[in-house]
């Protein structure tokens, strides 16, 4: 057990190195959510008739989840690159246990989620977003938990596609947009058709987004928070289970 912990921390630190060396790369991957914030947010306030501040209060939590969704779901491509160049193979012959190769990578997803979440919040405050610190302190770790699970799934997908880049991106893209649209992340689903609302209920992302909205509104005891936490933990558990199965399967 201690070997797994030590090895996981080695892999975690290795994964973190490029982020530490080039923090601006992280900024670059935050561009997409920021674009949604800047170019979609104003439309939203026009449609809803709410002032910018209130619409941001609704929109920003969703954007934080979005940045985690895109970051964690694409992270498998890093492993894919390492499978193609040979560094994954090199690590497979070191004493590092297989589990650590997945766990270290999946846990690393926590770091960009926290950094990007803080960045998105910081950018939104000047436009009237009101920060609820307790909400932030519970909300970001919740998103990070979700990202660990989704990251593990993304690595599992990379392992399953065995270096076939096309397959990785096809599956990732096919899943990501329905999940995003059916979570009410961009637009409220209340006015949508019944089947959409039904689907959104079984989408763990919906509960996460709802929880984040409650938290950032300061409603820490809202039932949505409990459901969100449950979804995040469930995604983490399923993701890690699938990921560990995949990395063990490939081991000789």
């Amino acid at each position: 057990m201690t070997a797994i912990a030590t090895h996981t921390s080695i892999v975690f630190n290795r994964e973190l190195k490029p982020l530490i060396r080039e923090p601006f790369a992280l900024l670059f991957t935050t561009v997409q959510p920021l674009v949604f914030l800047g170019l979609f947010g104003p439309l939203l306030s026009q449609v809803t008739g709410l002032p910018t501040g209130s619409s941001l209060q609704w929109f920003v939590p969703g954007i934080i989840v979005m940045s985690a969704l895109f970051g964690a779901s694409t992270t498998g491509s890093n492993l894919q690159l390492e499978m193609q160049t040979g560094s994954h193979e090199r690590m497979l012959v070191t004493p590092l246990c297989r589990e650590a190769l997945l766990l270290g990578r999946a846990f690393k997803e926590i770091v960009p989620v926290l950094a990007q979440g803080l960045l998105i919040v910081a950018v939104s405050i000047p436009f009237g977003f009101e920060l609820e610190v307790p909400g932030l302190l519970i909300g970001l770790p919740m998103v990070a938990t979700f990202a660990v699970g989704l990251g593990a799934l993304s690595y599992a997908l990379a392992l399953a596609s065995e270096g076939n880049e096309m397959m990785f991106w096809m599956v990732q893209q096919t899943l990501i947009f329905p999940l995003m649209l059916l979570s009410g992340m961009l637009l409220p689903l209340e006015g949508g058709p019944g089947w959409m609302q039904g689907l959104s209920k079984v989408n763990p992302l919906t509960h996460l987004v709802d929880a984040e909205r409650a938290l950032f509104a300061g409603e820490l005891t809202d039932r949505a928070v409990a459901y969100g936490a449950l979804s995040a933990v469930a995604v983490a558990a399923v993701g890690l289970w699938v990921g560990l199965r995949m990395i063990r399967r490939g081991s000789a």
């Binding site: 080695i10 090199r90 070191t94």
Partner: peptide, 26 residues
């Protein structure tokens, strides 16, 4: 083991990868 591919990760720094490799072996 030295394989046919590149053992060091392309997005990492040379020194970092060597230190990590050493840590891997205890």
């Amino acid at each position: 083991f030295i394989g046919q591919g590149n053992g060091a990760g392309h997005s990492h720094r040379v020194g970092d990868e060597l230190v990590t490799q050493g840590r891997t072996y205890g």
